[in-house]
Write a protein that binds this DNA or RNA. Structure first.
Lengths: 205, 205
DNA sequence: TTATATACAAACATGAATGTATGTAAATCT
DNA sequence: AGATTTACATACATTCATGTTTGTATATAA
């Protein structure tokens, strides 16, 4: 059996990405070979090399599955949830991200790979830069939201929106790391929502 | 030239660890070979294999140089700086850790390796567990300190020490990650102390 | 002072992993 | 219907890293 139809080929492509994710997760990106991935997908290296130039190419394909949607979701939460007050919108963004991780196996695994099973060296350093600038843009959006909260009187008026936004960003970054790294869920995952509530409570009037 | 004295051997051992750190940093742990390390140290693989069983063994030796002192420093800051009020002691711990990273090249590089140039797979998963439990113990110490602050009236009395401690822990974890990852220092490093001040300010009465 | 253990260097053997090249059957185009 | 791609599998060549073994000069111990 060879030469599938075009849709079939697209399907095996996705299948290879899924296989790569599984193997990356259990063996780490560096120690994963094309053979591992092919075997996990029930194919040979020939198929993998047909669809992807090399492991790096495959990694980026996997990553895009998650990080392009992330940007969209962020805008949605901040711009379209006009019914809640600004501080609640921030809270919903934080809680929603955690919920999304909780519900979505693919996203969760890719985050775990990127935080614990990947070395940011050479061409991967660009990825790290990209992550950092995503963080910066999140901070800016949170800052703008806190400023609106200040205007609408929902924010404790003794506090500075810019400082609060960066504090929230550090908090969230740390929370994400802990959440993802607590793979058995015994130490941090179950507290995540309470932590977010407590963090947000510090800001409310 | 062979067969050095016992002190000479101990010196080359340290030299190998230093070399490993440099190479781990630039090539990532997985892609580093014993040959790379030996060359960087001006030796052959024979020397490296004499002092260390394998790369993992060498990695752990490198890591211990930083993480054993860390535990000590933590106790010092929390227990012996009795002259300041509790909240200031927390602030000093946070700021002191950043300062230590700033001043100490070895520590900074090892943190960078552990956060960005290392895959936590197989035997390395234990290291991650260890890091997580260190975090938990930090939280506990911060919590105890906030509780003393509440008793001594330095803490805003509407706040819960346990919640605050976990919030501080997430904040600090995020800050450390950002600080280390901002390798050129243009995005986060220069703000670190202000971020800490702002974070602590939220807690003071 | 001689024997032995030490601190390495050099050589060897083995096992991957990679990328490419070739083969091939079926889908698609003309 | 025949020609040509496509979507893989298979085979090949090369490079590279590892671990081990052996060699050896010198500390150190007896």
């Amino acid at each position: 059996m060879v030469r599938k139809t075009k849709e079939d080929a697209e399907l095996t492509r996705a299948q290879i990405i899924d296989a790569a994710r599984e193997v990356f997760l259990s063996r780490g990106v560096s120690k994963t070979t094309m053979e591992h991935i092919a075997a996990q997908a029930g194919l040979t290296r020939g198929a993998v090399y047909w669809h992807f130039e090399n492991k790096t190419d495959l990694f980026h394909a996997m990553r895009e599955r998650v990080f392009l949607p992330l940007i969209d979701r962020m805008d949605d939460t901040f711009l379209n949830e006009g019914s809640h007050d600004p501080i609640t919108r921030v809270e919903n963004f934080l809680a929603g991200t955690i919920e999304h991780l909780n519900d979505n196996l693919e996203t969760r695994q890719i985050y775990e790979i990127m935080m614990m099973k990947c070395e940011y060296v050479g061409e991967f350093e660009l990825v790290m830069q990209q992550i950092l600038s995503t963080c910066t843009s999140i901070t800016e959006k949170i800052c703008a939201t806190y400023e609106r909260a200040k205007l609408s009187g929902h924010l404790n008026e003794t506090l500075d929106p810019a400082e609060l936004a960066m504090d929230t960003n550090m908090f969230f970054s740390g929370l994400l790391h802990m959440w993802v790294k607590d793979t058995d869920g015994t130490k941090f995952r179950y507290k995540a929502h309470d932590l977010i509530k407590a963090h947000i409570k510090l800001r409310r009037k």
